[in-house]
Simulated scan of single mutants.
Amino acid sequence: MFFFEDYAIDNHNFFSLIELVDQNFPVHFHRAAELIWVEKGTVSVSIEQKNWQLKKGESIFVFPNQMHEIIFTEHARLQILVFSPELIGSFF
């Protein structure tokens, strides 16, 4: 099972910073682009069924409409930058 997040789907200037602490996030996708940065600890990030282990100081980019999930493997804190793809037009 997965779900769709509708991050300000009609706002082409959408930009949000979210802090996630010790909270798994199930498989989902959205129209927004997402940059995940590990501030503390270690997490497992799955994008399109490929897995990465990220530790403090590492980051990963999720393109719009990619299925992804976040699983905390130990105490960790993430900063997640979510923004409309129009803000980086050449990728879109």
Score class of each variant (00 low, 15 high):
K50Q: 14
L87W: 04
D10G: 13
K56L: 07
I80A: 00
T42W: 06
F25L: 12
D6H: 13
T73A: 04
D6I: 00
S16P: 00
F25V: 02
L17E: 15
V21G: 00
H30S: 03
G57Q: 00
S84D: 14
I80K: 02
Q53F: 06
H75E: 12
H68S: 12
F3A: 01
E74N: 05
V38P: 02
M67V: 04
P26G: 09
I70S: 06
S90V: 14
E34L: 04
G89P: 00
N13A: 11
L87R: 07
F3R: 10
I9Q: 12
N24A: 04
E86P: 07
F61P: 01
V82L: 05
A76Q: 01
H75P: 00
K40D: 10
R77S: 02
E39H: 05
V38S: 09
S90A: 12
S16I: 08
K50F: 08
V45F: 03
E39A: 09
H68Y: 05
S44I: 05
F72N: 03
K40G: 03
Q49I: 05
Y7T: 06
V27H: 08
I9E: 14
E69V: 05
L17C: 09
F14M: 11
H75I: 01
W52L: 06
E58S: 02
F25Y: 12
I36E: 02
F91Q: 07
I18C: 00
V21C: 11
E34H: 04
P85T: 10
A76M: 01
E5M: 08
H12S: 15
I47A: 11
S44T: 13
P64N: 11
F15H: 08
W52S: 10
Q23L: 10
V38T: 09
H28W: 10
L20Q: 12
P64M: 05
N65E: 15
I36W: 00
F92T: 00
M67L: 15
L17P: 01
E39K: 09
E86Q: 15
F92K: 13
N11M: 08
I60T: 13
F83D: 09
S16V: 13
K50D: 12
G89W: 02
H28K: 09
K55R: 13
Q66W: 08
I80H: 07
H28I: 07
V82F: 07
Q49H: 13
N51E: 15
V38D: 03
F4K: 14
V27M: 12
G89S: 14
N65C: 11
T42G: 04
D6C: 10
F29C: 09
F83G: 01
F72E: 06
T42F: 06
